[in-house]
Design a protein around this nucleic acid. Structure first.
Lengths: 347, 347
DNA sequence: AATTTATTGGCAATCGGTTTCCTGAATTAA
DNA sequence: TTAATTCAGGAAACCGATTGCCAATAAATT
């Protein structure tokens, strides 16, 4: 740190008024005349003054910064969500600090510590795969900071939330498969302690039930959300004497695994095997055939999460801190029908 | 802001020593005994003390935070680079603030202002498409903050830099095409004021020249880095009476466009048309056929950019501020050969 | 035993805005 | 004209950690 930074004291001296008045002028407070305001602003500009948010934050208690913790920053869903958050923060003149837990509970706890030290005003978090406890979330609240859970949330922990309509989206997806004439629809799920995956499973089950389909129990698998494992699982299922004629998977990566399995077994998609994945990853548009998927509106979800803070927590006076009621927003997903699930009308 | 935050004063009172000693103990400074250190740390833990970085930063001048500005956060290359930076920052106990310029010069300037206000110690930046001037970069230096340009850099502006070996990588890619027997290799480039794209073009040209191939000038196009435009351009080129037999494109998206063009014209890839893209996007693995591409080691690049600060700027005493010599690191890319460029040995 | 040298810990200033309280002047009301 | 009310702007405390300097005690040296 070398060169002297321009401060409000420098401006005050130049203009010939008190530092406190400079502060008031720069913040457009009413107790200072327009003439002075203009003078101060002009001089600030002239001297190329940069206000020091550390100083301001220290005094005011607000950092005008919010933090976000995601499992993986380079997963399309999360990076899009972050892009949305960043947009909203920028509009509201707030900074955004990003941390990734790398799907580790321990890292997640560390991230929260870091953000507490940084004194962020609010934390937006999507839980890691490993996370079961919520002790660390409690600490956020103990430090008087805002908290918004998004996507991978713990429903038992009271806080504002933004989630997808996972169950309903899955229901629609499976219903679409049924409408296309598929009757033996297998399910490849995720870690079942994560509600996002579990909700998708419920949606699947509901659609199956409504259509009164008879699905063998071994068509319904958990923990098959990666390409490789899904490839293996699908290959096995498809070689049964009574194989599934369609797959609904909780991730696009799993859908890709199924596609590869069908391919290597010489089965035609969608004629002999229908496939729908989840998340609408970029690659779903370029596989052969292209993969149907559920689009989660991740960018909007991110915007909604950030707005949860700006609309419901920043302004809101902390009146009834005891009987708080938390907002819960559901972002609608939409089914993107591509080739892998649309049978040519040759029934 | 409600509940009182625990400060070093609280700890001091409880332990019965001065606040300054608490600070020294917590920072492991030598002028405090181990006994006191243990006492202080135990008490800090007990009281659940969180240190306030705003206060510390204000006094010390360092924020232990670095800022990164990228054109788009949700582009695989950048989100991976950011993931790498985040990792390095985390290891070094620094925060990372992320901003996106959205390919706009104006936004880029605003991002820099924001980061200056936040008082970050260093800014890592990859320039937007629109950016031509570097006035705003100068301001970073005027504010005594570190600056590292990465990927999309302005070579005329003196600063630390981390880039890919774009030219060489392109050269290798085109050489590979030539080795596969392609003779009429077209080039789809990017905005030519960006050195990254221009370097790739130079590498292409060099390989062409060395092989003494005769390429019609209209095979070499700029500003064709998106899927749609590349699709159109390739369709046109492929319908010439003397069409290209291969394409080298500066992005994978353009490569995808070419693939689609070949497809719709009924041309077989790689037999009749060879294709190599750039960036190794996720989707290159799942197209039909799969796309060869250049992997940029984006995560490593991000780590290198962040380490540039930790290794060369943080420790380095600002001795010869005038005759500074800037580090320039080149990250090696590697060619990933997939189906789209590997002709079955049927020559 | 006396004096020099280390070691340990405290005092107080400091970073740069923010905010409360207060004063003197200007405006309005009586 | 005098008293009451506004209003613009200033003085100073404050946020919480850091750090240079100093004092007191302990240790080492002669």
């Amino acid at each position: 740190m070398k060169g002297k930074r321009i401060t409000i004291y420098d401006i005050a001296k130049e203009v010939g008024i008190a530092p406190s008045s400079v502060s008031k002028a720069l913040n457009n407070l009413p107790s200072v005349s327009n003439k002075i305001k203009a003078l101060v602003k002009a001089k600030a500009n002239e001297l190329n003054y940069k206000y020091n948010s550390n100083a301001a934050n220290l005094r005011s208690g607000f950092s005008r910064t919010i933090g976000v913790i995601v499992p993986k920053i380079n997963v399309a869903f999360f990076s899009n969500a972050i892009a949305g958050m960043e947009e909203v923060c920028f509009e509201n003149n707030h900074g955004l600090i990003i941390c990734q837990s790398d799907e580790s509970y321990e890292r997640e706890v560390q991230c929260i510590q870091t953000l507490i030290h940084q004194n962020v005003d609010c934390i937006l978090i999507s839980l890691s795969q490993e996370t079961r406890a919520t002790q660390h979330l409690l600490e956020i609240k103990n430090n008087q900071m805002g908290l918004v859970q998004f996507d991978r949330v713990d429903e038992s922990f009271a806080s504002h939330r933004v989630v997808n309509d996972n169950s309903h989206a899955a229901y629609e997806a499976v219903k679409h498969l049924i409408e296309q004439g598929y009757k033996k629809i297998a399910f490849l799920g995720g870690s079942d302690h994560l509600t996002v995956y579990n909700d998708r499973k419920q949606g699947y089950l509901q659609a199956i039930k409504e259509a009164d389909l008879n699905i063998p129990y071994n068509y319904i698998l958990d923990n098959e959300f990666k390409t490789e494992t899904a490839l293996k699982a699908a290959t096995e299922l498809l070689q049964y004497k009574d194989p599934p004629d369609a797959f609904f998977t909780v991730t696009d990566h799993a859908a890709l695994g199924v596609l590869k399995a069908a391919w290597s077994l010489g089965l035609r998609v969608p004629d002999e095997v229908g496939i729908i994945g989840f998340s609408n990853e970029t690659f779903t548009e370029v596989t052969f055939p292209t993969l149907s998927s559920v689009d989660q509106q991740s960018r909007n979800l991110g915007k909604a999460a950030a707005n949860m803070y700006f609309n419901h927590m920043l302004a809101a006076a902390p009146v009834n801190t005891v009987a708080q009621n938390f907002e819960m927003q559901v972002i609608e997903s939409s089914l993107i029908v591509r080739e892998s699930s649309e049978r040519v009308r040759a029934m």
